[in-house]
Computed example of a mutant assay.
Amino acid sequence: MKKDKSRVEDVQWGDEQLREYLNFNTYDGTDRDFHCLYRAYTRMDAAAFEAFVELFKSENRNIHATNLEGKTLAQIVATHAKGGDYLAVLG
């Protein structure tokens, strides 16, 4: 992280902020649902991510969407040492 950047922690994620993560577009052909999930995973704590995934599913979005390499977010998270809580959310 650059020295002029500071880590943002303890962010309160409200419905409006979670909904913003449903609307990301991609420009490289990546599945839009995968992209939204991945961005949420990389920016939210586990509790916020769980709330986001519930919202994501309620919008009939594809939790099993894949990236350009054909991997789901769950497959990627399974390789991360600290991904257990997130993986449990993805089911």
Rank of each mutant, 00 (worst) to 15 (best):
A48K: 11
T66I: 04
T66P: 04
T66N: 01
L73T: 04
R7Y: 13
L68A: 03
L55W: 02
L73P: 03
H64Y: 07
G91A: 15
H35E: 12
G83S: 10
G14R: 13
N23P: 07
D31I: 06
E50H: 09
H64C: 00
Y27W: 09
R43S: 13
N23R: 12
M44S: 05
G84C: 05
L68R: 10
A46D: 10
A40D: 05
D28W: 08
F24D: 03
E59C: 11
F34N: 01
L37H: 05
D31M: 05
N67C: 06
W13D: 08
F49V: 08
A88G: 01
T30Y: 09
A48Y: 10
L87K: 13
A65E: 01
A74I: 03
L37Q: 08
A47K: 13
E69T: 03
F24K: 08
G91K: 14
Y27R: 11
V77R: 00
D15C: 08
E9D: 12
R7M: 14
K71M: 03
A46I: 07
D33T: 01
N67M: 04
D28C: 08
G84M: 07
R61H: 04
C36A: 09
H64L: 01
R7D: 13
H35C: 06
I76E: 00
A65V: 01
D4L: 13
D33Y: 02
Y27G: 13
E50N: 14
T66M: 04
N23G: 06
K3H: 11
G70F: 00
V89S: 07
T66R: 00
K5E: 14
G14E: 15
V8I: 15
A74S: 06
N60E: 08
E69S: 05
V53P: 02
E20S: 10
R32A: 07
N23F: 10
A46N: 12
V11P: 09
D85M: 09
G29Y: 11
D15T: 15
T72R: 00
V53M: 07
L22S: 06
T42N: 11
E9L: 15
T26F: 08
H35F: 14
F52E: 01
N60S: 14
T66Y: 01
G83H: 02
F34V: 07
D33N: 11
Y21E: 08
K82P: 02
D85A: 15
H80K: 12
F49E: 05
Y41C: 00
K5G: 02
